[in-house]
Deep mutational scan, measured.
Amino acid sequence: NQESVVAAVLIPINTALTVGMMTTRVVSPTGAPAEDIPRLISMQVNQVVPMGTTLMPDMVKGYAP
């Protein structure tokens, strides 16, 4: 099972992602793949992402898996 990126903390809208904001988990439906964490760092979210929420590609500005 592939791990997806999950918010480790509450991420406010327009916040640039840091490694400490993200964790990985096997979830369904799958979100952004765990191996993309290095690409996701410094990208901004376009909505509030509550802690424990799977990071879906459409939540991150300019990100395409």
Rank of each mutant, 00 (worst) to 15 (best):
N1A: 14
N1H: 13
N1E: 13
N1T: 13
N1S: 13
N1Q: 14
N1I: 14
Q2E: 11
Q2Y: 13
Q2M: 13
Q2I: 14
Q2W: 12
Q2F: 14
Q2R: 14
Q2K: 13
S4L: 06
S4R: 05
S4T: 04
S4M: 04
V5G: 00
V5A: 01
V5F: 05
V5W: 07
V5D: 00
V5H: 02
V5I: 14
V5K: 00
V5E: 01
V6A: 00
V6S: 01
V6C: 08
V6F: 04
V6Y: 03
A7S: 05
A7P: 02
A7L: 07
A7M: 07
A7F: 08
A7I: 09
A7Q: 01
A7G: 02
A8G: 04
A8R: 11
A8Y: 08
V9L: 07
V9C: 15
V9S: 03
L10C: 15
L10M: 13
L10H: 15
L10T: 15
L10S: 11
L10D: 15
L10V: 07
L10P: 03
I11Q: 00
I11W: 05
I11Y: 00
I11S: 02
I11F: 03
P12N: 10
P12W: 09
P12C: 09
P12V: 09
I13C: 13
I13K: 15
I13H: 05
I13Q: 13
I13Y: 11
I13M: 13
N14W: 15
N14A: 07
N14D: 13
N14K: 05
N14I: 09
N14P: 00
N14T: 08
N14R: 02
T15S: 10
T15Q: 03
T15V: 09
T15Y: 06
A16L: 12
A16Y: 15
L17N: 06
L17W: 05
L17E: 03
L17F: 06
L17Q: 00
T18Y: 08
T18M: 08
T18I: 08
T18N: 05
T18R: 10
T18C: 09
T18K: 11
T18L: 09
V19Q: 12
V19I: 14
V19Y: 15
V19R: 15
G20Y: 13
G20F: 11
G20P: 08
M21E: 06
M21V: 04
M21H: 08
M21D: 07
M21L: 01
M21Q: 04
M22F: 04
M22Q: 07
M22W: 05
M22G: 06
T23A: 11
T23R: 06
T23W: 10
T23Q: 08
T23M: 12
T24M: 08
T24A: 13
R25C: 11
R25Y: 08
R25Q: 09
R25A: 13
R25V: 08
R25K: 13
V26P: 07
V26Q: 11
V26Y: 13
V27W: 09
V27M: 00
V27Y: 02
V27S: 03
V27R: 13
V27G: 00
V27T: 12
S28G: 02
S28Y: 15
P29C: 07
P29D: 05
P29H: 03
P29G: 01
P29N: 01
T30N: 14
T30E: 12
G31P: 00
G31N: 05
G31C: 03
G31R: 00
A32R: 01
A32H: 03
P33L: 09
A34I: 06
A34D: 02
A34M: 05
A34Q: 03
A34E: 03
E35M: 12
E35V: 14
E35W: 15
E35C: 15
E35P: 04
D36Y: 04
D36Q: 03
D36F: 04
D36V: 02
D36R: 00
D36E: 06
I37M: 11
I37K: 00
I37S: 01
I37F: 03
I37N: 02
I37R: 00
P38K: 09
P38L: 09
P38E: 09
P38H: 12
R39S: 06
R39V: 12
R39G: 05
L40C: 07
I41R: 00
I41P: 08
I41H: 00
I41G: 02
I41D: 04
I41M: 06
S42K: 07
S42F: 09
S42W: 09
S42V: 07
S42P: 01
S42H: 12
M43A: 03
M43V: 04
M43R: 11
M43I: 06
M43T: 02
M43P: 02
Q44I: 15
Q44H: 12
Q44V: 15
Q44G: 02
V45E: 02
V45Q: 03
N46S: 09
N46Y: 08
N46A: 07
N46V: 10
Q47N: 02
Q47I: 10
Q47K: 03
Q47S: 05
Q47V: 11
Q47D: 02
Q47G: 01
V48G: 05
V48P: 11
V48M: 15
V48A: 14
V48Y: 10
V48W: 12
V49A: 01
V49H: 03
V49Y: 03
V49Q: 00
V49T: 03
V49K: 01
V49R: 01
V49W: 04
P50G: 06
P50E: 11
P50A: 10
P50S: 09
P50L: 10
P50D: 08
M51S: 10
M51A: 14
M51P: 10
M51Q: 13
M51V: 10
G52S: 03
G52T: 01
G52H: 08
T53S: 12
T53K: 10
T53M: 13
T53A: 15
T53V: 11
T53Q: 11
T53C: 13
T53I: 08
T54E: 04
T54D: 01
T54C: 07
T54M: 05
L55P: 03
L55I: 14
L55F: 04
M56G: 01
M56I: 00
M56Q: 10
M56T: 08
M56C: 08
P57M: 06
P57V: 09
P57N: 01
P57C: 09
D58I: 08
D58T: 12
M59S: 05
M59Q: 03
M59W: 04
M59K: 04
V60C: 05
V60S: 00
V60P: 05
V60R: 00
K61D: 14
K61N: 14
K61R: 14
G62I: 02
G62D: 11
G62R: 00
G62F: 07
G62Q: 05
G62T: 04
G62L: 05
G62A: 07
Y63I: 02
Y63S: 03
Y63V: 03
Y63N: 03
Y63H: 03
Y63K: 01
A64I: 15
A64C: 15
A64W: 14
A64F: 15
A64N: 14
A64D: 11
A64G: 11
P65S: 12
P65C: 11
P65M: 12
P65I: 13
